[in-house]
């Protein structure tokens, strides 16, 4: 993903997105510090820190703020948010850690062997490397519950496929460039997929439809077929199977 390279821009800055939204841009790069600031401001605004805000959408380096111009005008909101940026604590209020059990390889993780060959690693070394990393949910987007993760070890960075595949299953664990992902709904994708999780990132019938949110920390735990089948069955029965790690 190309980094913005426009003429000198000073960050943070606030840009209009029409008459009912604005974007608070914290930087022009993907890094943890930027994401932490985005999430911290999202949490404060979602908690009602400023009147007239309808919803916020945290992304890699910017926060989209939807507002009701009948309650707050864009120019006034810009001033309030700039003030908040000047005195904002950059720590996130609550940090959640989740361990995602994954079955490497198989039909859904069909790119595993090819990727190992490409990286000149053994299959088990690749799995160990992927499962040892600490990931961070930078944003949820593209589709309901789809998690964009940062923290992929550099050795696993891999360009997207030239020709996207037509159907990738929900729960597929992917690699696209320097990013990692967990699919939430079936659909086409040009990413490479090396594993799957029995966890459902999105289930509209569940009390908490979305498993993850921006700012969450994620680690993968390799599981075997037997455990995967056991978890699949539990998920199908609607039982909560996610593992929240102690902070």
């Amino acid at each position: 993903m190309a980094v913005m390279t426009n003429a000198p821009a000073h960050f943070p800055r606030i840009a209009a997105c029409g008459d009912s939204a604005l974007a608070v841009e914290f930087s022009d790069r993907i890094d943890e510090a930027t994401s932490a600031r985005v999430v911290a401001m999202a949490d404060r605004l979602a908690a009602g820190a400023v009147a007239g805000i309808r919803e916020v959408v945290p992304t890699y380096r910017s926060l989209l703020v939807h507002y009701d111009p009948a309650l707050v005008r864009g120019r006034d909101l810009t001033v309030q948010l700039m003030d908040m940026l000047e005195c904002q604590a950059e720590t996130e209020s609550t940090v959640r850690h989740i361990i995602v059990p994954v079955l490497y390889g198989g039909e859904t993780g069909a790119d595993l062997d090819a990727l190992a060959e490409l990286k000149e690693m053994t299959r088990s070394d690749l799995i160990a490397l992927h499962a040892s990393a600490h990931y961070r949910v930078y944003m949820i987007g593209f589709a309901p519950g789809f998690a964009y993760l940062g923290g992929l070890p550099e050795r696993l960075h891999t360009p997207r496929l030239a020709v996207p595949r037509q159907r990738i299953e929900a729960g597929a664990i992917g690699i696209g460039g320097q990013q990692a992902s967990i699919n939430s709904v079936p659909g086409p994708s040009g990413w490479r997929f090396i594993a799957r999780t029995p966890l459902k990132l999105f289930d509209p019938s569940r009390k908490e439809p979305f498993l993850l949110r921006a700012g969450d920390r994620v680690r993968f735990r390799a599981i075997e077929e037997t455990e995967a089948a056991h978890l699949d069955a539990a998920v199908a029965r609607g039982e909560p199977v996610e593992e929240w790690a102690a902070t």
């Binding site: 993903m1 190309a2 980094v3 913005m4 390279t5 426009n6 003429a7 997105c17 029409g18 009912s20 939204a21 974007a23 841009e25 022009d28 790069r29 993907i30 959408v57 992304t59 890699y60 380096r61 910017s62 926060l63 989209l64 939807h66 944003m139 987007g141 964009y148």
Partner: peptide, 13 residues
């Protein structure tokens, strides 16, 4: 400045 940006939020319109 190029046609790729770091993905961010969209609005209708």
């Amino acid at each position: 400045a190029g046609h790729d940006i770091i993905s961010d939020g969209t609005v209708a319109g």
